[in-house]
Amino acid sequence: MEDGRVWAFEESLWTADAEHYRESIDESALMVVPQPPYVLESEAAVEAVSRTPRWDAVRFSDQRIVRPQEGLIVVAYKVEASKGGGKTYVAHCTSTYRRIEHERWTVVQHQQTPPLVAEAQLEAG
């Protein structure tokens, strides 16, 4: 998958409907999110992500892509998401995709760390 398609796919995970999430999240996915229960796997990850509010717009920065082996893509980035009513969300994220078949990829790992969480942990350390 070329870089432009990778970022379009990642953006769709923030803005698309619940059905798109269900199709895009691998059945053996692991996720770490900034609210309880924090660590999710398999069907719990799919359910949690499908219930996540959709964002109207997202902007990525500090984008990185690595391809450690054939059929595996890892991305890291900062996201700034927004939706009506002035609600915004900022986090540093990673996602890992694996190729299921030709041109079909699923998310096997996703992690979100809001900046304040990371800064608080460093200060407490």
Rank of each mutant, 00 (worst) to 15 (best):
T52E: 10
E47Q: 11
P36T: 12
Q109L: 11
R5K: 14
M31K: 05
E23V: 05
Q69M: 14
F60H: 12
A81L: 04
R5I: 11
F60G: 02
C93S: 11
A124N: 11
R5V: 15
T94N: 08
V32A: 04
D56M: 09
K87R: 13
Y77V: 13
D56C: 08
G86Q: 15
E2I: 06
R54W: 12
R59L: 14
T96V: 15
A76C: 11
P53S: 04
H20S: 05
E23I: 05
I100V: 15
S95K: 04
Y89E: 07
P36M: 12
D3H: 03
W55E: 05
A45L: 05
Q112V: 14
R64K: 14
A44P: 02
Q109H: 12
V6T: 13
S24T: 12
A91Y: 08
V39E: 04
E23Q: 14
P37A: 07
Q35L: 12
R64W: 11
T106W: 00
A16C: 09
R99E: 00
V90H: 01
W55Y: 05
G71F: 07
G4D: 13
S24I: 04
G86C: 10
V39C: 09
Y21S: 11
A16D: 13
V46M: 04
P36R: 12
Y21W: 13
E80Y: 08
V108N: 00
A124L: 06
H110K: 07
